[in-house]
Protein backbone atom coordinates (compact mmCIF):
# COMPACT_ATOMS: atom_id res chain seq x y z
CA UNK A 1 0.00 0.00 0.00
CA UNK A 2 2.85 2.33 0.87
CA UNK A 3 4.35 2.26 -2.59
CA UNK A 4 0.97 3.05 -4.07
CA UNK A 5 0.57 6.07 -1.86
CA UNK A 6 3.88 7.52 -2.89
CA UNK A 7 2.57 7.79 -6.43
CA UNK A 8 -0.21 10.06 -5.30
CA UNK A 9 0.07 13.54 -6.74
CA UNK A 10 -0.28 15.48 -3.52
CA UNK A 11 0.96 15.00 -0.03
CA UNK A 12 -2.13 16.70 1.40
CA UNK A 13 -3.99 13.73 0.03
CA UNK A 14 -1.84 11.31 1.98
CA UNK A 15 -2.44 13.22 5.13
CA UNK A 16 -6.17 13.14 4.56
CA UNK A 17 -6.08 9.42 3.92
CA UNK A 18 -4.11 8.79 7.06
CA UNK A 19 -6.84 10.53 9.00
CA UNK A 20 -9.67 8.69 7.35
CA UNK A 21 -8.08 5.32 6.82
CA UNK A 22 -10.34 3.77 9.42
CA UNK A 23 -13.51 2.47 7.77
CA UNK A 24 -16.00 5.31 7.81
CA UNK A 25 -19.74 5.29 8.10
CA UNK A 26 -21.86 5.12 4.99
CA UNK A 27 -23.65 8.36 4.17
CA UNK A 28 -25.37 7.53 0.92
CA UNK A 29 -26.16 4.11 -0.43
CA UNK A 30 -27.50 3.49 -3.91
CA UNK A 31 -28.86 0.06 -4.73
CA UNK A 32 -29.78 -1.08 -8.23
CA UNK A 33 -30.61 2.41 -9.42
CA UNK A 34 -31.99 2.68 -12.94
CA UNK A 35 -32.92 6.02 -14.37
CA UNK A 36 -34.82 7.02 -17.49
CA UNK A 37 -35.38 10.23 -19.43
CA UNK A 38 -38.66 9.20 -21.04
CA UNK A 39 -37.47 6.28 -23.20
CA UNK A 40 -33.74 6.90 -22.75
CA UNK A 41 -32.17 4.53 -20.24
CA UNK A 42 -29.59 6.86 -18.67
CA UNK A 43 -28.43 4.88 -15.65
CA UNK A 44 -28.19 1.11 -15.51
CA UNK A 45 -28.15 -0.76 -12.22
CA UNK A 46 -25.95 1.62 -10.28
CA UNK A 47 -24.68 0.45 -6.91
CA UNK A 48 -22.55 2.77 -4.85
CA UNK A 49 -21.53 3.39 -1.26
CA UNK A 50 -20.66 6.99 -0.47
CA UNK A 51 -18.72 7.29 2.77
CA UNK A 52 -19.39 10.00 5.32
CA UNK A 53 -17.05 13.00 5.37
CA UNK A 54 -14.96 12.00 2.43
CA UNK A 55 -14.71 13.21 -1.13
CA UNK A 56 -16.15 10.81 -3.66
CA UNK A 57 -15.36 11.57 -7.29
CA UNK A 58 -17.42 10.43 -10.26
CA UNK A 59 -15.49 10.35 -13.50
CA UNK A 60 -16.22 9.22 -17.04
CA UNK A 61 -16.60 10.52 -20.57
CA UNK A 62 -19.33 12.94 -21.61
CA UNK A 63 -22.79 11.42 -21.66
CA UNK A 64 -21.88 8.57 -19.32
CA UNK A 65 -24.51 9.45 -16.73
CA UNK A 66 -22.34 10.74 -13.91
CA UNK A 67 -24.12 14.11 -13.68
CA UNK A 68 -27.47 12.39 -13.95
CA UNK A 69 -26.52 10.16 -11.04
CA UNK A 70 -25.35 13.14 -9.00
CA UNK A 71 -28.69 14.85 -9.61
CA UNK A 72 -30.61 11.83 -8.35
CA UNK A 73 -29.02 12.39 -4.94
CA UNK A 74 -30.91 15.63 -4.27
CA UNK A 75 -33.78 14.75 -6.59
CA UNK A 76 -32.92 17.60 -8.92
CA UNK A 77 -34.07 15.40 -11.79
CA UNK A 78 -37.61 15.64 -10.41
CA UNK A 79 -37.75 19.05 -12.08
CA UNK A 80 -37.48 17.47 -15.50
CA UNK A 81 -40.61 16.11 -17.15
CA UNK A 82 -40.73 12.45 -18.01
CA UNK A 83 -37.96 11.16 -15.78
CA UNK A 84 -38.27 7.92 -13.83
CA UNK A 85 -36.12 6.17 -11.27
CA UNK A 86 -36.20 2.62 -10.00
CA UNK A 87 -34.09 1.10 -7.26
CA UNK A 88 -33.26 2.63 -3.95
CA UNK A 89 -31.12 5.50 -2.72
CA UNK A 90 -30.76 6.05 1.01
CA UNK A 91 -29.31 8.91 2.98
CA UNK A 92 -28.42 7.81 6.53
CA UNK A 93 -30.66 4.85 5.91
CA UNK A 94 -33.70 6.88 4.81
CA UNK A 95 -35.10 6.22 1.37
CA UNK A 96 -34.81 9.45 -0.64
CA UNK A 97 -37.57 8.49 -3.03
CA UNK A 98 -40.07 7.50 -0.38
CA UNK A 99 -43.43 9.18 -0.88
CA UNK A 100 -43.22 10.75 2.58
CA UNK A 101 -39.92 12.49 1.90
CA UNK A 102 -40.23 16.26 1.55
CA UNK A 103 -37.91 17.26 -1.30
CA UNK A 104 -37.54 20.73 0.19
CA UNK A 105 -36.11 19.21 3.39
CA UNK A 106 -34.00 16.79 1.41
CA UNK A 107 -32.41 19.57 -0.64
CA UNK A 108 -31.66 21.45 2.53
CA UNK A 109 -29.67 18.43 3.70
CA UNK A 110 -28.07 17.74 0.32
CA UNK A 111 -26.71 20.96 -1.18
CA UNK A 112 -25.45 21.40 -4.70
CA UNK A 113 -22.83 23.46 -6.51
CA UNK A 114 -23.32 23.72 -10.24
CA UNK A 115 -21.07 23.60 -13.24
CA UNK A 116 -21.46 27.26 -14.07
CA UNK A 117 -21.54 29.74 -11.18
CA UNK A 118 -25.18 30.76 -10.81
CA UNK A 119 -25.40 33.58 -8.28
CA UNK A 120 -28.82 35.16 -7.92
CA UNK A 121 -29.49 38.70 -9.18
CA UNK A 122 -28.94 40.28 -5.78
CA UNK A 123 -26.14 41.44 -3.54
CA UNK A 124 -23.37 39.18 -2.27
CA UNK A 125 -24.88 39.35 1.19
CA UNK A 126 -28.39 38.51 0.02
CA UNK A 127 -27.14 35.61 -2.06
CA UNK A 128 -25.89 33.93 1.08
CA UNK A 129 -28.75 35.05 3.29
CA UNK A 130 -31.25 33.71 0.75
CA UNK A 131 -31.11 30.12 1.99
CA UNK A 132 -31.31 30.84 5.73
CA UNK A 133 -34.09 33.39 5.08
CA UNK A 134 -36.30 30.97 3.16
CA UNK A 135 -35.84 28.55 6.01
CA UNK A 136 -37.20 31.14 8.38
CA UNK A 137 -34.19 32.95 9.81
CA UNK A 138 -34.76 36.72 10.05
CA UNK A 139 -32.46 37.68 12.89
CA UNK A 140 -30.07 40.22 11.38
CA UNK A 141 -27.23 39.41 13.73
CA UNK A 142 -27.41 35.70 13.05
CA UNK A 143 -27.56 36.34 9.31
CA UNK A 144 -24.47 38.52 9.56
CA UNK A 145 -22.69 35.72 11.38
CA UNK A 146 -23.67 33.16 8.77
CA UNK A 147 -22.55 35.42 5.93
CA UNK A 148 -19.17 35.99 7.49
CA UNK A 149 -18.65 32.38 8.54
CA UNK A 150 -19.59 30.91 5.16
CA UNK A 151 -17.59 33.48 3.23
CA UNK A 152 -14.59 32.67 5.39
CA UNK A 153 -15.35 28.98 4.90
CA UNK A 154 -15.28 29.43 1.14
CA UNK A 155 -12.11 31.57 1.28
CA UNK A 156 -13.88 34.60 -0.14
CA UNK A 157 -14.27 36.82 2.92
CA UNK A 158 -11.06 38.82 2.54
CA UNK A 159 -11.93 39.68 -1.05
CA UNK A 160 -15.51 40.80 -0.53
CA UNK A 161 -15.86 41.91 3.09
CA UNK A 162 -15.98 45.58 2.05
CA UNK A 163 -18.54 45.16 -0.69
CA UNK A 164 -21.15 42.79 0.65
CA UNK A 165 -23.87 45.05 -0.73
CA UNK A 166 -22.44 44.93 -4.26
CA UNK A 167 -24.12 42.80 -6.86
CA UNK A 168 -22.90 39.23 -7.03
CA UNK A 169 -22.59 39.64 -10.80
CA UNK A 170 -19.70 42.04 -10.23
CA UNK A 171 -17.49 39.18 -9.00
CA UNK A 172 -15.17 37.17 -11.21
CA UNK A 173 -16.17 33.66 -12.27
CA UNK A 174 -13.99 32.00 -9.63
CA UNK A 175 -15.30 34.32 -6.93
CA UNK A 176 -18.86 33.66 -8.05
CA UNK A 177 -18.29 29.93 -7.74
CA UNK A 178 -16.90 30.35 -4.22
CA UNK A 179 -19.91 32.52 -3.44
CA UNK A 180 -22.14 29.68 -4.64
CA UNK A 181 -20.27 27.31 -2.34
CA UNK A 182 -20.74 29.76 0.56
CA UNK A 183 -24.41 29.98 -0.33
CA UNK A 184 -24.65 26.20 -0.16
CA UNK A 185 -22.84 26.11 3.21
CA UNK A 186 -25.22 28.71 4.61
CA UNK A 187 -28.10 26.24 4.84
CA UNK A 188 -25.80 23.79 6.67
CA UNK A 189 -26.23 20.73 4.50
CA UNK A 190 -24.75 17.35 5.36
CA UNK A 191 -23.80 16.48 1.82
CA UNK A 192 -22.48 18.77 -0.91
CA UNK A 193 -22.86 17.69 -4.50
CA UNK A 194 -20.53 19.37 -6.97
CA UNK A 195 -21.27 19.08 -10.66
CA UNK A 196 -18.01 19.89 -12.43
CA UNK A 197 -17.54 22.93 -10.20
CA UNK A 198 -14.27 24.00 -11.79
CA UNK A 199 -14.96 23.41 -15.46
CA UNK A 200 -15.68 27.10 -16.09
CA UNK A 201 -12.78 28.36 -13.99
CA UNK A 202 -9.14 29.24 -14.56
CA UNK A 203 -6.38 27.09 -12.97
CA UNK A 204 -5.86 29.45 -10.05
CA UNK A 205 -9.54 29.50 -9.09
CA UNK A 206 -9.63 25.73 -9.56
CA UNK A 207 -6.74 25.35 -7.16
CA UNK A 208 -8.49 27.46 -4.53
CA UNK A 209 -11.67 25.44 -4.80
CA UNK A 210 -9.75 22.18 -4.51
CA UNK A 211 -8.09 23.50 -1.35
CA UNK A 212 -11.50 24.42 -0.09
CA UNK A 213 -12.76 20.89 -0.64
CA UNK A 214 -9.92 19.59 1.51
CA UNK A 215 -11.18 21.77 4.34
CA UNK A 216 -14.82 21.09 3.78
CA UNK A 217 -14.58 17.34 3.92
CA UNK A 218 -13.85 17.54 7.64
CA UNK A 219 -17.49 18.51 8.13
CA UNK A 220 -19.27 17.54 4.95
CA UNK A 221 -19.68 14.57 2.69
CA UNK A 222 -18.72 15.68 -0.80
CA UNK A 223 -19.60 14.07 -4.10
CA UNK A 224 -17.93 15.65 -7.10
CA UNK A 225 -18.44 15.02 -10.78
CA UNK A 226 -15.39 15.97 -12.75
CA UNK A 227 -13.97 15.68 -16.23
CA UNK A 228 -10.54 16.38 -14.91
CA UNK A 229 -8.89 13.15 -13.85
CA UNK A 230 -6.01 14.88 -12.11
CA UNK A 231 -8.62 16.71 -10.06
CA UNK A 232 -10.31 13.47 -9.08
CA UNK A 233 -6.93 12.03 -8.11
CA UNK A 234 -6.02 15.13 -6.10
CA UNK A 235 -9.18 15.68 -4.12
CA UNK A 236 -11.02 12.40 -3.70
CA UNK A 237 -10.66 9.33 -1.55
CA UNK A 238 -13.11 7.22 -3.53
CA UNK A 239 -13.69 7.23 -7.25
CA UNK A 240 -16.42 5.80 -9.41
CA UNK A 241 -15.93 5.35 -13.13
CA UNK A 242 -19.05 5.67 -15.28
CA UNK A 243 -19.37 4.53 -18.86
CA UNK A 244 -22.52 4.53 -21.02
CA UNK A 245 -24.84 4.68 -18.05
CA UNK A 246 -23.12 1.94 -16.08
CA UNK A 247 -20.75 2.21 -13.20
CA UNK A 248 -17.81 0.20 -14.44
CA UNK A 249 -15.70 0.42 -11.35
CA UNK A 250 -15.82 1.91 -7.91
CA UNK A 251 -13.10 1.92 -5.32
CA UNK A 252 -10.35 3.78 -3.53
CA UNK A 253 -9.03 6.60 -5.68
CA UNK A 254 -5.53 5.15 -5.38
CA UNK A 255 -6.60 1.86 -6.74
CA UNK A 256 -8.70 3.28 -9.60
CA UNK A 257 -5.83 5.39 -10.85
CA UNK A 258 -2.93 3.01 -10.26
CA UNK A 259 -4.30 -0.50 -10.61
CA UNK A 260 -7.76 -0.42 -12.16
CA UNK A 261 -9.40 -3.80 -12.38
CA UNK A 262 -11.34 -3.10 -15.56
CA UNK A 263 -9.86 -2.59 -19.00
CA UNK A 264 -12.25 0.31 -19.69
CA UNK A 265 -11.20 2.11 -16.54
CA UNK A 266 -7.55 1.68 -17.35
CA UNK A 267 -8.07 3.00 -20.87
CA UNK A 268 -9.96 6.00 -19.57
CA UNK A 269 -7.64 6.99 -16.73
CA UNK A 270 -4.61 6.55 -18.96
CA UNK A 271 -6.19 8.90 -21.47
CA UNK A 272 -6.85 6.42 -24.29
CA UNK A 273 -10.35 7.81 -24.73
CA UNK A 274 -12.52 10.39 -23.12
Amino acid sequence: MADVTTQKPTSLQDLARAQTSAPTATKILAENVDFYYSAFHALKTINIVIPDRQVTALIGPSGCGKSTFLRTLNRMNDLIDGTRLTGKITLDGEDLYDKRVDVVDLRKRVGMVFQKPNPFPMSIYDNIAYGPRIHGLTNRKKLNEIVERTLRGSALWEEVKDKLKASAFALSGGQQQRLCIARTLAVEPEVILMDEPCSALDPNSTFRIEQLMEDLKKDYTIVIVTHNMQQAARVSQRTGFFLRGEMKEFGDTDQIFTSPKQKDTEDYVSGKFG
Binding site: M76, N118, F120, Y130, H135
Partner: peptide, 27 residues
Protein backbone atom coordinates in the same frame (compact mmCIF):
# COMPACT_ATOMS: atom_id res chain seq x y z
CA UNK B 1 -34.18 32.87 -17.54
CA UNK B 2 -31.37 30.34 -17.23
CA UNK B 3 -32.46 27.05 -15.77
CA UNK B 4 -29.45 27.26 -13.46
CA UNK B 5 -31.10 30.15 -11.59
CA UNK B 6 -34.11 28.05 -10.69
CA UNK B 7 -32.01 25.00 -9.91
CA UNK B 8 -29.74 27.09 -7.70
CA UNK B 9 -32.74 28.11 -5.66
CA UNK B 10 -34.32 24.66 -5.49
CA UNK B 11 -30.95 23.20 -4.50
CA UNK B 12 -31.03 25.35 -1.35
CA UNK B 13 -34.35 23.85 -0.39
CA UNK B 14 -36.54 26.64 -1.70
CA UNK B 15 -40.15 25.95 -2.56
CA UNK B 16 -41.62 26.70 -5.93
CA UNK B 17 -43.18 29.93 -4.73
CA UNK B 18 -39.99 31.13 -3.02
CA UNK B 19 -38.07 30.42 -6.19
CA UNK B 20 -40.55 32.28 -8.38
CA UNK B 21 -41.03 35.30 -6.15
CA UNK B 22 -37.45 35.78 -4.98
CA UNK B 23 -35.29 34.58 -7.83
CA UNK B 24 -37.26 34.33 -11.07
CA UNK B 25 -39.22 37.58 -10.85
CA UNK B 26 -36.28 39.73 -9.68
CA UNK B 27 -34.17 38.30 -12.47
Amino acid sequence: IPRSQREGSYALGATKWETISQVVIPY
